[in-house]
Amino acid sequence: MVSAMDPGYFETMYADSADPWGFDERWYERRKYALTLAALPRPHYRRAFEPGCSIGVLTAHLARRCDRVVATDVVPRALESARDRLRREGVADRVELGLASLLDPWPPGAFDLVVLSEVLYYLTPADLATTLGRAVDALEVGGTLVAVHWQHPVPEYPQTGRAVHETVAATDGLHRAGAYQDADFHLDVYTRGPVPSVAAAEGLS
Rank of each mutant, 00 (worst) to 15 (best):
D112S: 11
V69W: 02
G161R: 05
L35N: 04
S197G: 15
R46V: 08
A100G: 07
Q151V: 05
P20Y: 01
L37G: 03
T191M: 00
G193C: 03
F111V: 02
S197H: 07
T59P: 03
R26F: 11
E50A: 06
G173H: 11
C53S: 14
E89P: 06
A4R: 09
T167W: 00
Q159I: 02
A177N: 02
L40I: 12
P155N: 06
E118K: 04
P107K: 02
V119A: 05
E11W: 00
P41A: 09
P158Y: 07
R94I: 01
R88T: 13
A78V: 06
V136Y: 08
R83D: 12
V2D: 04
E156G: 00
D24A: 15
D84M: 11
L35M: 06
V70Y: 04
G161T: 07
L123C: 11
D184F: 11
V189P: 12
A163R: 13
L123A: 04
M13S: 09
P41Y: 05
S117C: 14
A82W: 03
L204W: 15
P43W: 05
T72F: 04
G178T: 12
A92C: 01
A48P: 07
L139Y: 11
Y157H: 15
A15C: 07
Q151W: 00
V114I: 15
D24M: 05
L145H: 03
A135S: 14
R68Y: 02
D6A: 12
Y33H: 14
L174P: 06
S197L: 10
L174N: 11
V119L: 07
A4T: 05
